[in-house]
């Protein structure tokens, strides 16, 4: 149930890991698609918060499963567009809210901490020495 909308907000929070800790990289992911209610106003208000490059990059860098969905089924432009038309918002909605990562690992690009995802729930717990 990790949707890309949440993944786009998630940085590593281990001790001392303060730079280059975003975005967490996916590995060995399994994906499920679930329909969600389309809410264009929400997407429009949420757009400024998105790290566009991270969204597209994480899609590219991630395993073939994710990139197939993102680059195959829908097409997000590499640059964040100025004009928001209906088709673009529908694609964005699909990518952000309907793709659920069920299994896999998220890896911090900086400290290489692994956050395993099982049953759709990522385990964000840290060991004692990793707490900031």
């Amino acid at each position: 149930m990790v949707r890309l909308i949440t993944h786009n907000l998630l940085a590593c929070h281990a001790k001392g890991c303060t730079s280059n800790n975003f975005p967490l990289q996916f590995q060995n992911v399994q994906i499920e698609l679930k329909e969600a209610e389309f809410n264009p106003t929400f997407l429009e208000t949420f757009m400024p918060k998105l790290e566009w490059k991270a969204l597209v990059d994480s899609a590219k860098e991630a395993s073939a499963t994710i990139s197939r969905y993102i680059l195959g089924n829908t097409s997000l432009p590499l640059e964040q567009p100025e004009m928001l038309d209906e088709e673009f918002l529908k694609n964005l909605h699909h990518v952000l809210l309907e793709i659920h990562v069920e299994e896999g690992i998220m890896i911090c690009p900086n400290c290489k901490h692994n956050y395993p995802i099982s049953n759709g729930i990522p385990n964000m717990l840290l060991a004692e020495h990793e707490i900031g």
Partner: peptide, 11 residues
């Protein structure tokens, strides 16, 4: 699954 006493990593 997160211990809130360890802090969040949200942007």
């Amino acid at each position: 699954l997160q211990d809130i006493g360890q802090g969040f990593g949200f942007r």
